[in-house]
Amino acid sequence: MAKKSLIQREKKRQKLEQKYHLIRRSSKKELRKVTSLSDKLEIQRKLQLPPRNSATTRLHRRCFLTGRSRANYRDFGLSGHILREMVHACLLPGATRSSW
Rank of each mutant, 00 (worst) to 15 (best):
A71T: 14
T56Q: 05
R62H: 08
K15C: 02
R97Y: 14
G77N: 04
R62K: 06
R13Y: 10
L83W: 01
V34A: 13
L31N: 07
K11V: 01
H21T: 02
Y20V: 01
H21N: 11
C63P: 05
K33T: 00
L59M: 04
T57D: 12
L78S: 06
D75G: 13
S38K: 06
L22G: 08
E85S: 07
L31I: 03
F64D: 11
K19L: 15
G80A: 05
L92Q: 03
L83A: 07
G94F: 02
N72E: 03
K40I: 14
Q8T: 05
L47S: 04
K15M: 06
S36H: 00
L92T: 04
Q18M: 06
E30R: 05
K4S: 13
T96M: 08
Q8H: 04
L31D: 03
G77T: 07
R97L: 09
R24W: 06
Q8M: 08
H88N: 13
H21Y: 13
V34M: 04
P51M: 14
G94S: 00
L31E: 01
L65W: 02
I7M: 08
G67W: 12
S79L: 00
R52L: 12
P51V: 12
T96R: 09
R74L: 10
D39K: 15
L92A: 08
R62P: 01
R25E: 10
R74P: 04
E17G: 01
S38V: 13
K19N: 03
K40F: 09
K4W: 07
L31H: 11
R45L: 10
R32S: 11
Q18Y: 09
Y20I: 00
A89Q: 13
S5T: 13
D75F: 02
L47F: 05
S36T: 15
L16R: 05
L16G: 05
R9F: 11
S5V: 15
H60N: 06
M86G: 02
C63M: 06
R84K: 11
R68H: 09
I7G: 01
G67E: 08
G67C: 09
S38H: 04
Y20L: 02
Q14R: 13
T56A: 12
R45V: 15
H60V: 08
I7L: 14
